[in-house]
Design a protein around this nucleic acid. Structure first.
Length: 715
DNA sequence: GTAGGGTTAG
């Protein structure tokens, strides 16, 4: 047991993330990939691997698959450790862990612990001339004729060393491949692996996967050895081109040819699976690597950290931190940045803050990316004090700024409603040399002015955008429309909308939501103008609004059409759509329709937790409802309760309705509107003294109110 | 000069 490389948390993950618990972790390794299933293969023999033969069928004959090699081992050396032997703090465990228990047996290795050795450089005295020559090649026309012309000027014969030096200094991939092919035709020396590797690296910059693959096949044909550097270049190029199946295919091929990946190739592949969101496979690979004696470095942990952040897996992030500590791996700047970003993804601002402090204390200075992550996290969390303190520190420490960080600061100001600070920043950007405001900056400012209801400043920005030719994007357009709608400046709204369409803005569901919400408080001519805009963005919505106005429309028809609209709408825009449509119905005095829509919204799960019940209290939660929807929900509730009182059914002691305090920047004054509606109904709900936005009524008050209403109705 | 792996915006 002493030799086991697993830590307590490993156990947790080996259970959570082993791809198939029938197979103990560390053995059978069935990847499930979109196109096919395959099994990792590697050689376990002591003899060095043979150079790659030419076809994969030959390969399989020569090298048995890993699964085949491991079969006898897996049935003899593995056992499940009884639960009592488990380390403490593994409360998440539901199954006994599986691991190696016979340390005298060799562990099957999935990666080579030895990194690929680089050939040492010898000094080339012709370096100046050759670099100058390479620069000429870089700068000349891409046509083959122009290139050939410059080639004539080569200052020294293209020996192996000279050619390599030039190849290393070529930048556009077109030039690299031309030069590579030329060197080949010169036939002065055999083209070794390093020539292919250098060329591939340049092709990777240009994302030319197909050419890289052709080169690789050329190597196979010419019996030039593919080494770890070749494979990692191919794999990362496939990854950057989003050709993940290709990346996996080449990784698989490595083992088949008997070449063991080293840690660079291995972590590149970890990243491939991480980018595919295949957490189980990554953890399985990770654990198998660890079981092979691999001590992962900061880069590998950065891959894991990013993956867990994307997966929103907080336990995963903690695991990465603890694993690094256990293995004595010091996080570097990139690891900190990745983990901070991940903390943001899982919404843990407090942990992000302490991680940042730990980083600064350890003597690592934050860069633009670090600060961008942290600023965004504080903004999203509405941690105004921390955000402003951080900003002060950035200024006094002279920490680096770039325009993404500027824009993120602006967005944070929008999130926190910091108008003056945003204006200051925006001016700084205008005055700066490298961080001029772009469409993001303008959008952030439009957001700030829009939610602060500062129409004039928002329109001034719009004029600047038109004059300066800054791109107006769909979010900026949405902010303007919200703001102009609330100010009832419908002609300006139409102008902005038409301008945006002309500039190529594609209206999305949020933009339609804004138009819908403007519709809900428009009358007369204005209504028609806004409807005309909405018609251009989403004609189906306009048809639906017309349809629900018609008295003859049946509930069945509304239901069908509403369902179809929701299906066409992105998930996050569905509730706002329903809210607005309910408001529109109420404003047109088609309250019956409003009730139908609320009913359907509830059925389709747009209002989860609208009603909550405990033995003592029933609560109506209308925080995420619009004013009209909240009124509708209250009426519906009162109707239900009335029936229950009449039938003398059991009722709790307390009734409450929660509107929220209405402090959010998008709040439409729901608490006061709700209070007004309660008064109109003369319902016995009172604003709670302890909690803003909570309206409470006792059973006795409610029952006597219901009874007096019934009496009045029958009288 | 250094043939290969990881991190920033609604």
């Amino acid at each position: 047991m002493a030799a086991t490389p697993f830590t307590a948390l490993d156990v947790h993950y080996s259970i959570l993330y082993s791809s198939d618990t029938k197979f103990p972790v560390g053995f059978t390794f069935p990847f499930k990939l979109p196109s096919k299933r395959f099994t990792l293969v590697c050689n376990s023999s002591k003899s060095p691997p043979k150079p790659p033969p030419n076809s994969s069928t030959e390969l399989q004959k020569q090298n048995p698959s890993l699964a085949e090699q491991l079969k006898p081992l897996s049935s003899t050396t593995l056992t499940d450790i009884p639960p009592k032997d488990q380390p403490p703090n593994t409360h998440l465990l539901t199954k006994p862990r599986s691991t190696w228990v016979n340390p005298t047996r060799p562990k099957p290795s999935v990666l080579s612990l030895q990194r690929h050795k680089r050939s040492s450089y010898s000094y080339n005295p012709r370096i100046r001339d050759l670099k100058l020559f390479a620069r000429k090649l870089n700068e000349c026309d891409t046509s083959e004729a122009a290139f050939k012309g410059v080639l004539e000027e080569i200052p020294h014969p293209p020996t192996r060393e000279n050619s390599l030096l030039v190849l290393n200094n070529l930048k556009p991939w077109e030039k690299t491949i031309l030069f590579f092919n030329w060197v080949k035709t010169q036939n002065l020396f055999p083209i070794e692996t390093i020539f292919y590797n250098v060329t591939m690296k340049s092709l990777r910059f240009g994302r030319q996967f197909q050419l890289i693959e052709e080169l690789a096949h050329d190597m196979i044909k010419n019996e030039v050895e593919l080494d770890n550097i070749t494979y990692s270049t191919i794999i990362t190029c496939a990854k950057r081109c989003n050709l993940f199946d290709k990346a996996v295919e080449w990784f698989e091929r490595m083992y088949k040819t008997g070449l063991m990946p080293d840690e660079v190739t291995y972590s590149a592949v970890l990243d491939v699976y991480a980018k595919l969101g295949k957490v189980e496979e990554v953890m399985s690979l990770y654990e198998r690597g660890r079981a092979s004696g691999w001590k992962p470095d900061a880069i590998a942990f950065s891959v894991l950290g990013k993956m867990f952040g994307e997966a929103g897996d907080y336990d995963g992030i903690r695991y990465v931190l603890q694993e690094m500590k256990a293995l004595g791996v010091e996080p570097n700047l990139v690891v900190y940045n990745t983990l901070l970003e991940a903390m943001g993804k899982v919404a843990k601002p407090g942990l992000a803050r302490s991680l940042f402090e730990e980083m600064v204390e350890s003597g690592i200075n934050p860069n633009e990316k670090t600060l961008t992550s942290l600023v965004r996290i504080y903004g999203k969390a509405r941690w105004a004090r921390d955000a402003l303190q951080l900003w002060e520190r950035m200024k006094s420490n002279g920490w680096p700024m770039d325009f993404i960080l500027y824009n993120t600061l602006l967005s944070m100001c929008a999130d926190l409603g910091l108008v003056d600070e945003a204006e200051g920043l925006f001016e700084d950007m205008k005055a700066s040399e490298h961080s001029k405001p772009d469409s993001w900056s303008y959008t952030a400012m439009l957001n700030i002015y829009g939610s602060g209801r500062n129409v004039d400043k928002a329109m001034k920005l719009f004029e600047d955008i038109s004059d300066l030719g800054v791109e107006l994007n769909v979010m900026g357009c949405t902010c303007l429309i919200q703001c102009l709608g609330r100010a009832k400046r419908i002609d300006d709204l139409v102008r902005v909308f038409e301008f945006s369409l002309k500039k190529g803005v594609k209206p999305d569901d949020r933009l339609c939501g804004s138009l819908l919400s403007v519709l809900s408080y428009c009358e007369g001519e204005d209504l028609d103008k806004v409807l005309a805009c909405l018609h251009q963005a989403n004609p189906k919505l306009v048809a639906f609004i017309k349809m629900v106005e018609e008295e003859k429309t049946s509930f069945e028809m509304v239901k069908e059409e509403f369902k179809s609209i929701l299906n066409d709408t992105s998930v996050e825009a569905r509730r706002p759509f329903c809210n607005c449509l309910i408001d529109i119905c109420r404003n047109k005095d088609t309250t019956e329709r409003a009730h139908e829509l609320l009913y359907m919204g509830t059925v389709y799960g747009l209002y989860p937790g609208l009603h909550t019940k405990t033995a003592d209290e029933w609560r109506l939660n209308v925080r995420s409802l619009s004013v009209g929807a909240a009124h509708t929900a209250l009426e519906e509730w009162v109707g239900t309760l009335t029936k229950m009182v009449e039938r003398q059914e059991a009722l709790p002691q307390l009734f409450s309705a929660n509107t929220g305090a209405g402090t959010h920047k998008f709040s439409q004054g729901l608490p006061s509107a709700f209070a007004l509606h309660v008064r109109k109904l003369a319902a016995p709900f009172r604003q709670s003294e302890e909690k803003a936005g909570l309206f409470v009524a006792t059973r006795e008050d409610l029952v006597s109110w219901v009874q007096s209403r019934s009496l009045a109705a029958t009288a």
